[in-house]
């Protein structure tokens, strides 16, 4: 699934420090089956989430979203469940890289008071998130163009495939200083 810009969706709001074990518990990461991951997404945090989430919805959180394990299944599970973007005050670094790499927009909005059920309009390149009903605008960290390109390609693997080779990784450099 490729990312549109802007992204529009309904919010589901959670708090700080949502770790990868709560996004997708380790016991379910034995599989690469996306539907299986989607089935158990966020189940220890909010058992109703899976039933409530609709394609394109936006997960909203506080600080340090995605802390913990390096499992790429965490953003994959969210994406497979239909989540169109994650908006958080801050992200754990591995989750952030993983999300962009698999084509799930992770949008850093350092200050927000977004409530559940809001209709959000996320403008990646402008660095702004708009709550359409209240009209409130929240400043987002602007995303470098290459990241938006990766998201719009549907992830890093597609991005590289579309361009051929390994992009910036293809030039050989001396190994030892």
């Amino acid at each position: 699934m490729k990312t549109e810009n802007p992204i529009r969706g309904r919010s589901h709001v959670y708090g700080d420090d949502i770790d990868t074990d709560r996004i997708i518990p380790g016991k379910y990461t034995k599989t690469l089956e996306l539907s299986q991951l989607a089935e158990h997404v966020l189940e220890d945090l909010d058992p109703e989430f899976r039933a409530r989430v609709e394609v394109g919805d936006i997960l909203v959180a506080g600080h340090n979203f995605g802390c913990g394990s390096s499992r790429e299944q965490a953003p994959l599970a969210l994406k497979a469940a239909g989540v169109g973007a994650v908006v958080a005050k801050s992200f754990a670094r591995i989750f952030y890289r993983n999300a962009i790499n698999i084509g799930l927009p992770a949008v850093e909005v350092p200050e927000h008071d977004i409530g559940t059920g809001a209709i959000l309009n996320v403008r990646l390149t402008d660095g702004v998130v708009i709550d359409e009903r209240s009209g409130k605008r929240f400043r987002a960290t602007k995303m470098p163009e290459v990241m938006v390109d990766i998201l719009q390609a549907g992830g890093l693997a597609n991005y590289l495939k579309e361009r051929g080779g390994y992009g910036p990784f293809s030039t050989e450099q001396n190994r030892t200083p």
Binding site: S70, E72, N98, N101, I102, G155, L156
Partner: peptide
């Protein structure tokens, strides 16, 4: 630490 895509690359 990194996720699968970064590691694969």
């Amino acid at each position: 630490g990194m996720g699968a895509t970064d590691i694969a690359l």
